[in-house]
Design a protein around this nucleic acid. Structure first.
Lengths: 241, 241
DNA sequence: ACAAAAGTGTTAGGCCTACACCCATGA
DNA sequence: TCATGGGTGTAGGCCTAACACTTTTGT
């Protein structure tokens, strides 16, 4: 953030923040990354001390190229997770005049998807923690509302974007993918139909099996066919479930 | 807007605006309301003088309850159109650091739908003018980009919301409705299939014919079944085309 | 009577849904 | 060998898309 000092304007200006809903998936449940408020050194940022909150922070007027850059930068500073601005999808603006007790603050909410398996341990645990969607604590500000809208947006986008491939490891099995879809959409699918549809989209590449055995038949492992996905997207496709 | 004066902060704050893409439909084409820049009394708002631009303006930090209120207020001030904040759907945030040459300004873009037939003459013609989508002049700032995204959003929302009923007069004919859908989606539909689908949704009420004759067979006139629409929406429906 | 616009119904094909059995593995 | 979890194919129904002719009215 720019140096502390005195900045004057002819008209009042609001503060602008970018808050992020970071989704992860542990193979069972959809999870969200939250941070514990209260450690801030700056008196001016003290509010809802001790509450859990979405990661996020103030737009650096002089340096952040877009609010997505703010989101990426703040997430990195608060949780050590390194995401690029283009990993953030906009959820919407939350601008109610009373939403922050300190001053007028409007926030641009975003969501991002991370492969939980690849970032375990990347976050420092006394500030940031993953919470199951079914077990979210009371949140600061209007963050519960933001979270609800972000989930809704995620559910909508699942039809247009290969959400699953951002949340699962590089290589995954069909049951894992199905389970993820069921978690996000809160419903059940028929195994065969799900497999058929997924295969017909042509976005799956079978990966020759090698090592891992588990307590049953070995599932076939797949990875995401990115090239083909780009081609399909250009043609304006639509995933239906 | 709050009184001009001196407002100071410890950190730089961006200015925040709400810009609106107001769509109308004249029975033939989709149109957008633009305003001519340059009439502003305030030196501080002078930029892109003489350009056409989307209506919009600065968030009143002390009075606008949300940015949708800003959008509604500015639209009223600039074009005399009276819309309610809930008529504005959010399109997205445009926050690039260079998008305004004067200072850092981020804008929350919205779109709104109006019945052209009901607002003709409501706007004062030397500031505001309706442009066909196929004939948009060069726009100020990044407003051309905003307009493109707003159109995209409108096209997406047409599947979830009865967009047509906000753009057409109270009472309309099926050919009018079809024409509107074709304008927005830039495609053609089969007349029979379109009529069947529309009727099966159960959102149309036939209106007994009375006066209007035109150069051919008299089309059946309909109005929008709002009650039934609310019921369908609660059940999470989906319009497919 | 002719041109222009609007109304209407049917059929074939594809897609979605529902459903049951076999296979591989680990205990 | 048994329990668990994963893989696979088919048949019926529904929805979609394609299609042509008749009606009304104004000129």
């Amino acid at each position: 953030m720019a140096k502390k000092g005195t900045y004057t304007y002819e008209y009042p200006h609001p503060a602008v923040t970018a808050d992020s809903v970071v989704f992860g998936y542990d193979g069972k449940q959809l999870k969200v990354l939250l941070i514990k408020r209260g450690q801030e050194k700056e008196a001016s940022t003290r509010a809802y001390v001790g509450f859990w909150a979405l990661p996020g922070g103030f737009l650096d007027v002089e340096r952040d190229k877009t609010v997505a850059h703010t989101a990426a930068r703040e997430l990195r500073e608060e949780t050590k997770l390194k995401l690029s601005p283009k990993d953030f999808k906009e959820v919407g603006t939350f601008s109610h005049i009373d939403r922050d007790p300190r001053e007028r603050v409007i926030t641009i909410a975003h969501y991002a998807l991370v492969k939980l398996s690849e970032v375990e341990g990347d976050t420092d645990a006394d500030k940031a923690e993953w919470f199951a969607m079914s077990d979210i604590p009371r949140l600061a500000f209007d963050h519960d509302q933001i979270l609800r809208v972000a989930c809704k947006r995620l559910r909508e986008n699942i039809f247009f974007e290969p959400v699953g491939f951002d949340l699962l490891p590089e290589v995954f099995t069909l049951p894992q993918l199905q389970n993820l879809y069921e978690s996000i959409l809160e419903c059940k699918f028929d195994r065969r139909n799900f497999a058929n549809k997924m295969k017909h989209f042509g976005m799956l590449i079978e990966v020759p099996d090698d090592t891992p055995r588990r307590g049953s038949r070995t599932p076939i492992r797949y990875k995401f066919d990115k090239d083909n996905y780009e081609r399909l997207k250009a043609g304006g496709f639509r995933l239906e479930f």
